[in-house]
Design a protein around this nucleic acid. Structure first.
Lengths: 149, 149
DNA sequence: GGAGACAGAGTGCGCGTGCAACTACCAGCG
DNA sequence: CGCTGGTAGTTGCACGCGCACTCTGTCTCC
């Protein structure tokens, strides 16, 4: 085995670790958010992304990338949330192809209620990951990540 | 904002980064494996996990955890792969509830053909992640992960 | 100013997934 | 022995997703 093969194996191992930790966290969040606030993880992610824009709008396309979703999925996701009164579509005046989305007060409120659940479950899931030998190094690295303000 | 709130925000940020990188890699792998070998990422993961057992069997339950899948999804995934002749179900003698799965020669062969694609695309996706400012630190950390042999 | 290329958003469709309910099976205990 | 609690795997069902396609609107170039 040459040095190149080692690099390949390290990448594969890293990817498996990443996927495992991702699955662990996502499953935990999914269950908690679903039962306590009737929200899926992507739905929470979208609401959170919108709130992070702080009063500003977001186009569908940006939302799609923020949630790692396809265009079609984003359309339907926004439709669902709109029907629940959590956000509104706003037609863009200068580019009439574009559609902005904005959080409604009800949306902000639900997000505020869900955030503690999200943060608590995330902390728990990371702690559990930290207790799993093959996941612990990655969890550690995650905590040391430079916080981009 | 206290120090506790900072920790919460760092965790949330880390999770978003993790999810973003995961999505980037998974999408790239999905497309490449699908078009070149008619395999989904989970299917590849299962074949890879089985090959990694090197001649030994794996129970459905273990497979489910290895692929971060539910029990029902694992059943159907194994069924699909079995119908394609890539693996076989083996009834367990000592515990008649259990079912072992094993790679067929055709399965090993397909895996061997798909592995170069997988490794190449993974390397590319990581490289692209490394070029994205908010993802770069995590990609870096991934490379420095202790290789558990 | 009209034609073509392109981007943003929506729709039809097939498919894989999780949850809940179910069956088959093992282990312990009265 | 039968009974109970718990585990392994399978099936019915509803739902969200990606892909391919369409539609509308914008930009560019001649």
């Amino acid at each position: 085995m040459g040095i190149g093969d080692d690099a390949v194996e390290i990448r594969a191992q890293g990817w498996r670790t990443l996927a495992a930790l991702h699955g662990l966290i996502e499953t935990a969040l999914e269950r908690a958010l679903q039962t306590e606030h009737d929200l899926s993880v992507v739905e929470y992610t979208v609401l959170d992304a919108l709130s992070r824009q702080d009063g500003w709008h977001m186009r569908m396309r940006q939302l799609a990338r923020a949630a790692a979703l396809s265009g079609s999925a984003t359309t339907r996701l926004v439709t669902r949330l709109e029907e629940r009164g959590l956000l509104t579509r706003i037609l863009c005046a200068d580019d009439r192809r574009g559609i902005y989305t904005e959080l409604t007060p009800a949306g902000s409120e639900l997000l505020a209620r869900a955030r503690p659940t999200h943060d608590r479950v995330l902390a728990d899931a990371l702690a559990e990951g930290g207790r799993t030998p093959e996941l612990a190094p990655l969890v550690d690295a995650l905590h040391r990540l430079p916080a981009a303000h």
